[in-house]
Design a protein around this nucleic acid. Structure first.
Lengths: 339, 339
DNA sequence: CTGTTAGCGCTTTCAC
DNA sequence: GTGAAAGCGCTAACAG
């Protein structure tokens, strides 16, 4: 059984293929009677247009790419959901890909996205070198909107205020009497890492807090392994150890919490912990981690809206960066320091 | 600047388009020197093949559809990640869609997937009526593999042993002395709901436990609202209230936990709670909920493998159902009942 | 091992 | 309002 093409519909409705094409594309200049005739034929034949053929001629695919580092990270899960909701509203479909923080994986995904003729991309770059990938996209006239991580380019972006978010968390620790604050962080080729590091350093400088290179643990976002870090701190005399930790990233915080648990260090009794982004997608009554929470669903939803507006030409203003201010959720992973 | 086509490459390499086509499709019968010449031209022109044109002629798109109810549900998040990993390994891309338990939304997504010429679909049906949608897919010769939820059809499926999973949880409560066990569950048009309900009912019958219609709360998976349920139970005399709850679904459990919290009912002090599937994607040291855990990543990964094997014709055996046995994770949401 | 021809299913362009 | 012709970029089927 061969599937119906536009010609089958045309024949059955006694019109030309062009007329059928006009009907399926909601053209206005069609006699209502003709439209009905065609619609009837479409229905009877169970005709579904072939997108590849449409894309080949008309140059648009109604296909969008969502390229993030990892859908399994609750932050990006929500971005994905927000993005898909908006795309669906506007009649687009979404291909999604996980770069796993790898530039090479990212590049290869971008090539296949281009090959698919995607109309646009919502993109969280793996790092600063992703600029090259954006250039490839531009060469193919594909609009891009950045989510969460910035790049030094004239592009639409939807990001969070990482510096002030960090400041809130640091200040919370500070007000509880903590002055020796450890930092668990990611690679500095990622803008969010850099900005949160900056927030941390600013705060320490501003308040004149002690700082120590050994309190800072910089690691890969996919490997982590904070156990080594904790072991190393434990080798220090107690009065040289941090009394609190700021984790730059939700996955790192989980790893940190597990490592502390491994060594029998209790949170918040023995040490306080705060984190940027919630490792749990759904707040539960028993969650303990104090975090600064962003609205990743909005990032995806709004980012997608901007992207589609660009694609459809309804947005022609200069690229623009939307910055959201995060919100602090105080739970039970921090404790006032006994003097 | 117009982008390079296969003819541009052909011209530059002094060969025919067909030869270029052979090179990009890794045909074997090509002289190495020719291949190199072509590769060089491809490189120089930064040529990326047009998938739409390829799909239009060759009939395969290397595009797969992942149609689930909600990526934001941690269970499906992992399914999605597993599916994408396998798809990527095998050179396929994934469009993802959220049906939100709606048959209509599901149907519309399936039509656009067909229109895109997808090679196959990994699918969690919204309910039993999805059989119609599968029929549409079959009509277009599109292989389907079901994940998590069954349908009464000859199809490949990857599912969990819901009956025995439920039994483990019920038995755990029973061994702690609970006999009045409430059930929070979803719509019975979903196979997982039905099977877990069956596990619950079987256990009650088998052990001769008391049962009461008022202890059972059946709700929509997207609306929930367990508060009304709890309020209603609270109206009962204490000795007629459940001392423990089994939640059929992770999202329902979160809602339940929040409702209990709202009414000042403490878990596990006042009431025990167990749940099928973990609402948290990442186990944290402070998680309290006792659950039966499935391996959704595997479901996605394995399901995708079967799907691609079907597509590529390397799997020709009769459709087959893989059933995974879940594992119980005892945490701190249950307590021995004081006699 | 390589090339020619035709055509996939649609829409653009132009004609009437 | 509607239709005919041409062509989008590629590959199947054949030929040599």
């Amino acid at each position: 059984m061969d599937l119906a093409t536009i010609y089958d519909v045309a024949k059955r409705a006694n019109v030309s293929a062009m007329t059928v094409s006009r009907v399926i594309n909601n053209a206005t200049n069609i006699k209502e009677a003709t439209r009905q005739k065609v619609l009837k034929a479409i229905e009877e034949l169970d005709y579904i247009p072939n997108r590849s053929a449409q894309t080949l001629t008309s140059k648009d695919s109604k296909l969008l790419s969502l390229l993030i580092t990892d859908v399994a990270n609750p932050f990006y899960t929500s971005v994905a959901r927000g993005a898909e909701d908006k795309a669906h509203e506007r009649g687009y479909q979404l291909v999604f890909s996980n770069s796993d923080e790898s530039f090479d994986k990212e590049s290869s995904y971008i090539r296949s996205a281009i090959s698919r003729g995607i109309d646009g991309m919502l993109f969280t770059p793996s790092g600063d070198s992703s600029v090259q990938n954006i250039n490839l996209l531009s060469k193919h006239h594909i609009p891009v909107v950045l989510v969460d991580r910035r790049l030094d380019l004239e592009l639409d972006m939807v990001v969070g205020d990482n510096i002030n978010g960090t400041k809130m968390l640091m200040n919370h620790l500070y007000e509880l009497g903590h002055t020796r604050i450890g930092l668990v962080t990611g690679p500095s080729v990622v803008s969010t890492t850099r900005e949160r590091d900056e927030g941390y350093n600013n705060f320490i400088k501003e308040k004149g807090l002690p700082s120590d290179e050994r309190w800072i643990f910089r690691t890969d976002l996919t490997k982590r392994r904070t156990s080594a870090y904790i072991a190393q701190l434990l080798a220090l005399p107690a009065e040289e150890r941090p009394t609190a930790f700021f984790s730059n990233n939700n996955f790192l915080a989980v790893d940190l919490l597990n490592s502390l648990n491994e060594f029998g260090i209790k949170v918040p009794e023995d040490v306080s912990v705060v984190c940027f982004d919630d490792p749990q997608p759904i707040p539960m009554p028993d969650s303990i981690l104090t975090v600064v929470r962003q609205q990743p669903y909005e990032y995806g939803y709004v980012g997608m809206e901007i992207l589609i507006d660009r694609i459809e030409g309804s947005k022609t203003s200069k690229p623009n960066t939307i910055v959201y201010t995060p919100e602090m959720i105080i739970r039970h992973s921090t404790k006032r320091l006994n003097p």
